[in-house]
Amino acid sequence: MVERAVAPPPVDTATQPRSDHALMLAVRDGELDALGELFERHHGPLYGFLVKLTGDRTAAEDIAQVVFQRMLKYRHTYRDDGSFTAWMYHLARRCAADHFRRSNAAPHATDPAVLHAHADDRPHAAHHATVRDDHALLHAALARLDRDDREVLLLARFQELSFAEISGILECSVGAAKVRAHRALRALRDIYFNLQKEPAS
């Protein structure tokens, strides 16, 4: 359970909990408080997706914040027949793309304190020493994965989305979404096992 720093608005428990779709329709119709319930339900998985996608906790929080801002801003575009989760990840994908575009365009400041971590980007020596355990290796493998592959893999493995929803998010066919997800898993596997085979310093 996530520790809460700010108490969310009280939710009426006397009635049946509304579905994500019903809540978002209420937000669209002006009941802005309903977005608080959607935030409580989805900000954790959304943040997890963004952390794995960006490899940056601060950026993930910032992007998650922007996603909910855009939900409010573009609430009138939410469709009656839509899927809230697919819509949310559709927005998240766009926000993350904006983040990557800005990151690539902006000059990168280098902290002298972490220069040793950038001395050699190849998986050797000091770098390898930091990724000895499996989880660290997996994070390193995910970071090396092509961004599109990482995106589809995270959507397929973690977000409990159907391939129909993923295809909607990626704006491709269901078959293409499956192929891309399977190809991404194999690519990750190759990177992951290659990292394991590299000698530690």
Binding site: V2, E3, R4, A5, V6, P8, L32, D33, L35, G36, F39, H43, G44, Y47, G48, V51, K52, R57, A60, E61, A64, Q65, F68, Q69, L72, D134, H135, L138, H139, L153, R157, F158, L185, R186, L188, R189, Y192, F193
Partner: peptide
């Protein structure tokens, strides 16, 4: 087997939790 190991490693990745800042900022924005 290799694909299964990779998928298993993915599934056992520790979930990440945001800082309280995200909730604070969200309700301020709302």
């Amino acid at each position: 087997a290799t694909l299964t190991a990779t998928a298993a490693a993915l599934d056992t990745m520790a979930p990440s939790h945001p800082s309280p800042r995200l909730r604070t900022n969200f309700y301020a924005m709302l």
